[in-house]
Design a protein around this nucleic acid. Structure first.
Lengths: 329, 329
DNA sequence: GTGAAAGCGCTAACAA
DNA sequence: TTGTTAGCGCTTTCAC
């Protein structure tokens, strides 16, 4: 069934080392022999064995990507960026989703390590790096995504979320908003806290905090929306932790007969492809998602290069003004 | 750096085969020895080598997924379904994107084969199965996704797109529409032709054909939109090849000052998560995307089971009526 | 220019 | 109950 170098060798009437030479050192083999071997490869349907090469200690062509959820459009886009860069290098991407569960992350990292990948790009579920410490100690290169490097010395690709939160806040302040909510869903992981901090800086004080019950498009928004609009001194604007939450919020507001932006201005985060296409079009904070993935892949592949030095790249997000924010009295 | 069974063996003062027994046949090894070996595994940081196991002919834990574009929300969702089922079986997913290019597909299939995966789940770029024939002949299990099985005898997970097109068409006919357009982007691959056929059946005649310049959310819609609305006898409704195209169309219409659904009813396809959240909310044809992925993974893993018989599963899509379609004069 | 041989980490059949 | 051994497909010296 599976034809290897041995089959090629016997079909071409040469030894396996000659076949190996054709593959790895073609200059050294005679023209005619080379042709014969190449023909034999075609006719037997030769497929080089990656596992065997790895066993010999050659660099693996596999790279792991550990995100929160590859179905989430943000991570899907990110993975595509990673894939694009890896593809140029003949490498392939193993994608996995942790669902923000530390135990699943741990298990996935183990599984990944067993494939002896060239490295792993990870959006960590938590800040404590114990899980990663072991992986790093065993020599698997790790690139952090959307997480600042901490005790571990690693390459990292990050976004300045403090700036992102500040951009959103300053925009609203410029429009005259004074009471502003920060709307999240799910746990307060580090990037979320940073956005919160930035927003607070811009407002000169803490925002009103609102938490939706789930991260999905329209799940569990009702209670949060009610809390938001029925507050004693209701906010006039809301900064959301991401575009998905923003859309869920807008939908919840509309369901209660409230208008965006007239009754509440809303700012998203990420500028996912759909952000420009919901109605009203979403004002949001953009980060260059695919580029983030590409750079992460680049850093990872560079780990194996001689004289590699770990680097941390921080991207600056930018405000994209659309139709969900307006000036307030 | 990387600690294997040998290191564990010497740390525990046993032979490698005893370590192997602890791993593969724990019942056979003495309680005390087992504990000693397990302790040694922990202390040296043992990671089992997948490549070495594969070399020995054990089943691979890698599965390839070849889609058009993993950043596309449809395929992202699909891959998540695949991942979920694979994860239960301790397998991992290699995702790659062909961008509908046959040459890239071919190259990716080669790369995948070199990893000797347990199998490959593929949304083929074209109908000619030559590329796949070779893969199948070499013994790699292949499951077709969104493609009917053809000359090759393979497992396949498909959606009845003729029915899908018909559902969209019948809905519009019920609303009194007579002139209906079919709006596509990109090449007419088989699933697209099937939707077209279904629509034609419902209409009792061919739809007006409109092709957007690109598949992206809002790219190149302008000319197509103009052609659509400036036709001598303009259609009153449009069935789109997918939700992304539908949103692009709606946006193009709105940009020209036309209203949906008053000036044109629009039907999408897929019911992607955002479909319910664009405004007006999209009437569309739903298929159970994640489930499709799960089943595909299930079929693939079953290929290695004794007595496996190839199966083709066809899912029926269903119409989801929202706000982009209305009754016409 | 070509081939023989050793060994990567593991498993499985057999020996002790 | 544990150890010895051969070999999976490949690369890499080193001889020829």
């Amino acid at each position: 069934m599976r034809r290897g170098m041995r089959e090629v060798a016997s079909a071409a009437g040469v030894s396996v080392s000659t076949v190996a030479n054709v593959l790895n050192n073609p200059a050294v083999v005679a023209e005619g022999t080379r042709r014969r071997v190449e023909a034999a490869m075609d006719s037997v349907g030769f497929v080089r064995s990656g596992p065997a090469r790895q066993l010999r200690g050659l660099p693996s062509r596999l790279v792991g990507s550990v995100t929160l959820d590859q179905a989430n459009p943000f991570y899907a886009e990110l993975n595509r960026g990673i894939e694009d860069h890896l593809d140029d290098a003949g490498c392939m991407l193993l994608t996995c989703s942790t669902d923000l569960r530390a135990d699943k992350e741990l298990r996935l990292l183990r599984l990944l390590e067993e494939q002896s990948p060239r490295g792993v790009i990870i959006t960590p579920t938590g800040e404590e790096p114990q899980r990663l410490t072991a992986v790093v100690a065993r020599g698997t290169p790790v690139v952090l995504l959307d997480a600042r490097q901490n005790s571990l010395d690693l390459c990292a690709v990050a976004v300045d979320h403090v700036l992102g939160g500040r951009l959103a806040g300053e925009h609203l302040v410029r429009l005259g908003h004074r009471r502003v909510a920060f709307v999240t869903a799910g746990p307060d992981i580090e990037p979320v806290r940073q956005r919160h901090d930035g927003l607070r800086q811009a407002l000169g004080g803490p925002p009103v905090e609102v938490r939706l019950a789930a991260a999905g498009f329209a799940e569990g928004t009702d209670a949060a929306v009610r809390a938001l609009v029925e507050a004693a001194d209701p906010p006039t604007a809301a900064v959301c932790v991401n575009d998905v939450v923003a859309v869920a919020l807008i939908r919840g507001l509309q369901a209660r007969g409230l208008r965006v932006p007239e009754d509440l201005s809303v700012v998203g985060y990420d500028d996912l492809p759909f952000a420009a296409h919901v109605r009203p079009a979403l004002t949001t904070v953009r980060r260059p998602i695919r580029e983030l993935g590409r750079i992460a892949a680049e850093l990872l592949l560079d780990e194996s290069a001689a004289g590699h030095r770990h680097r941390e790249l921080v991207f600056a997000p930018e405000l994209v003004t659309r139709a969900t924010t307006v000036r307030v009295g």
